[in-house]
Design a binder for these strands. Structure first.
Lengths: 115, 115
DNA sequence: TTATATACCTAAAAAACTTATGTATATAAT
DNA sequence: ATTATATACATAAGTTTTTTAGGTATATAA
């Protein structure tokens, strides 16, 4: 995760959300997508990503499918039905937490700020 | 942090921010303030809070002062000069992380949403 | 032939947090 | 009287998550 030591548990939510949008993704692709979406500011390390993927698979939220592309092995992950349910719940949990965080850190109401 | 196990390191930032606003707070007061600001949704556990306070003190960001109030001991914490500098940097780090999180989780630009 | 990119993986260690426990005083409820 | 709750501090064992560091392998650019 590079310089920012802030994600905890949010990595799972990030993975699930990206898979909700993309149907099928492989590990390396996820790291690149996150890097791209955050202008290189969030870098997911492999040591964090792969164990997280394996855990989500073990919990039955993801399934895998191996493909051979240019003599290279790719392991594609996609959401199971349980996984699809979990995305929604994990997302609102995280959004709720972020809102509470803003209530603590930004107590003032800023003009022009709408939710 | 009770039921929501989200975003690590944010506890330190919460403590520093509350102390920036309040000059002097004791541990129990911090737990109550956070509970109040988040309508009871975030509950800081003592097992997380006290080690965090001790660590910030050891790092030279906080100083302590013990007071006797109604036969009870209170340990008041306040920011050192280094602590005052750290608040700003920790806050912008966390805000930056949250923004990146939103870029991943809320890719669409919502109408009426201004930063 | 060396470095970089792609692509997977694991294992030891560090860090943060939960859960459980302990001490102590004060007050409200049974 | 005694139990529960609130106030107020603290630590220690265990769990989870992440970092750091290492390993394997192919392809391409320098």
């Amino acid at each position: 995760m590079s310089n920012n030591n802030l994600i905890k548990g949010s990595l799972q939510t990030i993975i699930l959300k990206l898979l909700e949008e993309n149907e099928k993704m492989y590990g390396y692709e996820i790291t690149q997508r996150v890097k791209e979406l955050t202008s290189g500011e969030i870098k997911i390390t492999e040591g964090a990503l792969y164990p997280a993927l394996h855990k989500l698979e073990a919990e039955g939220l993801l399934t895998t499918e191996i493909q051979q592309v240019d003599n290279r092995v790719r392991k594609y992950y996609s959401l199971t039905k349980d996984g699809q349910k979990e995305v929604t719940s994990k997302l609102s949990e995280l959004q709720g937490f972020v809102e509470n965080l803003q209530r603590i850190l930004n107590p003032e109401i800023k003009p022009g700020f709408n939710i």
